[in-house]
C-alpha cells in the first residue's frame, strides 16, 4: 500500500514537470505550427545558467534564469525561425532540429560534454514522512510551481488582450492578422512564455538531480513533443493533459516493471503511445490535420 502511495507521489511530481514541458512546446506549436526541438536546449541552458549563478540567493537565481531562458527563446525565434516562417513543415522541423543541434554543440564547445554537478535548492531534498510515504519538499514545490505556472498561463491567455490575441492567432493566424493582431508580437510572446516554462523545468530538474549535461533537456522535452502530438495538435489543454499522463505512466511503469526491464521503461511508454495513435490518429482532443500557417 505504501509503495502505491509512494508511486502516486512520484507520479504527481514527474507528471507535473512533464506537463510544464508539454505546455511550453504546445504554446509555440499553436501559434506557429512548429515543433521546437530546441525546447530541450532551452531547458538545458536554464540549467547551465543555474550553474553559473550557483551560490546566489535562490530568488535571484530563479528570476535570472527565467529571464535568461525567455530571452534566448525570443532571440531564437528572431534569428532562426522568423526567416523560415511560413515555410513547409519539413523545413520548419529540420530548422528546429538544426537549432537544437547547434545549441547543444555550442555548449559542448565551450563547456565540454561531461556531466557537471552543482547544488541548488538542496535543502528541498530533505524528506519528511507522511503515513510512511517519503515526500520531499521538492515534490511539493514541483506540484505547486506547476499549478502556479499553469494558472499564470491560463490567466494571461484569458484575461489579457495579448493572451486573447494569442489564442486567436493559434486558432486562425491569418484571420487574426486581418483584425490587426501583430504577428511578430504574438509569436514573440508565445516564445517568451515557452522560455519561462522551460526555465521552470530547468530549475526543478537541477534541484532534483544536482547535475547538468549538454543532452539533459532531451528526456523532458521528448515527453513534451509526444504530448503535443497526442494531445491533438493545437490544443493546449490536450498537451498539458497528455504531458501529465505520459509522466504518470512513465513513473508507474518504472515502479511496476521487473528490475531487469526498468531501463526499457521508455520503450514501454512508447509502445503505449503507438497503440494510442493506432486507435486515435487524431489525438486526444482531435486535430486539424493539415494546417497552413499564414
Amino acid at each position: 500500500m505504501t509503495s502505491v502511495l509512494q508511486t502516486i507521489v512520484d507520479a504527481l511530481s514527474f507528471g507535473s514537470m512533464s506537463a510544464l514541458a508539454a505546455l511550453g512546446i504546445a504554446l509555440v506549436f499553436g501559434v506557429m505550427r512548429l515543433i521546437n526541438f530546441a525546447h530541450a536546449e532551452l531547458i538545458m541552458l536554464g540549467a547551465y545558467g543555474t550553474l553559473v549563478l550557483a551560490g546566489a540567493p535562490w530568488p535571484i537565481v530563479v528570476i535570472c534564469v527565467v529571464a535568461f531562458v525567455a530571452l534566448i527563446a525570443v532571440g531564437m525565434e528572431r534569428v532562426a525561425f522568423r526567416p523560415v516562417r511560413g515555410a513547409s513543415m519539413a523545413t520548419l522541423l529540420v530548422t528546429s532540429f538544426a537549432v537544437s543541434y547547434f545549441l547543444q554543440n555550442l555548449v559542448i564547445l565551450f563547456e565540454g560534454a561531461q556531466v557537471k554537478t552543482l547544488s541548488f535548492g538542496v535543502s528541498l531534498l530533505d524528506p519528511f514522512r507522511v503515513i510512511d510515504v517519503r515526500i520531499t519538499w521538492l515534490d511539493l514545490v514541483t506540484v505547486v510551481a506547476t499549478l502556479a505556472m499553469l494558472g499564470a498561463v491560463a490567466a494571461i491567455l484569458t484575461r489579457t488582450r495579448t493572451g486573447v490575441q494569442l489564442r486567436a492567432a493559434t486558432e486562425n493566424f491569418r484571420m487574426a492578422r486581418m483584425v490587426g493582431v501583430r504577428a511578430n508580437r504574438v509569436i514573440a510572446v508565445a516564445f517568451a512564455m515557452s522560455g519561462a516554462l522551460a526555465a521552470t523545468v530547468s530549475l526543478l530538474l537541477v534541484a532534483q538531480n544536482g547535475t547538468v549535461s549538454p543532452a539533459m533537456g532531451l528526456q523532458p522535452a521528448l515527453i513534451g513533443f509526444v504530448a503535443t502530438v497526442i494531445g491533438g495538435m493545437g490544443s493546449l489543454i490536450g498537451a498539458v493533459t497528455g504531458g501529465f499522463a505520459l509522466g504518470v505512466i512513465t513513473v508507474v511503469f518504472q515502479a511496476s516493471l521487473p528490475v531487469g526491464l526498468t531501463p526499457y521503461t521508455d520503450a514501454f511508454v512508447f509502445a503505449i503511445v503507438i497503440g494510442f495513435l493506432v486507435l486515435r490518429p487524431n489525438g486526444l482532443f482531435g486535430a486539424r490535420l493539415t494546417e497552413e500557417r499564414a
Binding site: I35, L93, V226, M233, L277, P281, L289, T290
Partner: peptide, 10 residues
C-alpha cells in the same frame, strides 16, 4: 497512418 508531423515526432 498518422499525419506527417506526428509521424516525424514518432
Amino acid at each position: 497512418r498518422i499525419s506527417g508531423l506526428a509521424a516525424a515526432i514518432t
